[in-house]
């Protein structure tokens, strides 16, 4: 049976970076060491967050982060930010191809990084809202929130792939 958490009835605190504890107001129920997972990590960042116990079983689903009390929201957000690492590309520094493998050096919100893109046709996806998702050869993810906000050179480098 699915158990939904609407928001104000729970107090969330960070347990250990990616883990949180959930304390329900008006009851003695306290769940510790829960791992929050986005059910829609691409299409809905703040909605439907599944809370898993140490065995990987779901104990509850938070319908919308925005409905949580501010401290709980901050705790959950911090755990999710730790768990999900999708660097946002802010600039293309270098892109070159050798034997069908592209090496991209990019500037991201987490620093400069170089990675390989093995098959641009399958590794690059443009979403309905214009975001571009990239999966590198090691299955790490990157995002370009809005290509047209990047500098002209970066746009030109990316255009043929989308």
């Amino acid at each position: 049976m699915l158990k939904y958490i609407e928001g104000p009835e729970v107090k969330l605190t960070v347990n250990d970076k990616i883990f949180i504890d959930a304390e329900f107001y008006g009851s003695d129920e306290k769940l510790c060491g829960l791992e929050p997972h986005r059910l829609f990590p691409i299409s809905g960042l703040n909605k439907y967050i599944s809370l898993l116990d140490s065995e990987g079983n779901e104990v509850a689903i938070i319908r919308n982060i925005d409905n949580l009390l501010p401290e709980s929201k901050a705790a959950l957000q911090s755990a999710l930010d730790e768990y999900y690492m999708i660097p946002k590309i802010t600039k293309f520094i270098k892109r070159y191809e050798k034997f069908s493998i592209w090496m991209w050096t990019v500037e991201t919100d987490r620093g400069v990084y170089t990675f390989e893109v093995r098959n641009s046709l399958t590794a690059i996806k443009t979403l309905y809202d214009g975001r571009i998702l990239i999966k590198d050869g090691s299955d790490n993810r990157y995002e370009i929130p809005d290509l047209y906000k990047l500098d002209k050179r970066s746009i030109k480098m990316m255009l043929p792939d989308i």
């Binding site: 250990d16 970076k17 990616i18 990590p41 730790e82 768990y83 999900y84 690492m85 999708i86 660097p87 790490n140 993810r141």
Partner: peptide, 20 residues
């Protein structure tokens, strides 16, 4: 080794605690 989303961590469990 805990695989997360786009990154992973090594956690060590000792008698006192588990830390990343």
């Amino acid at each position: 080794v805990k695989r997360m989303y786009g990154n992973a961590i090594i956690r060590i469990k000792t008698a006192e605690k588990t830390e990343t």
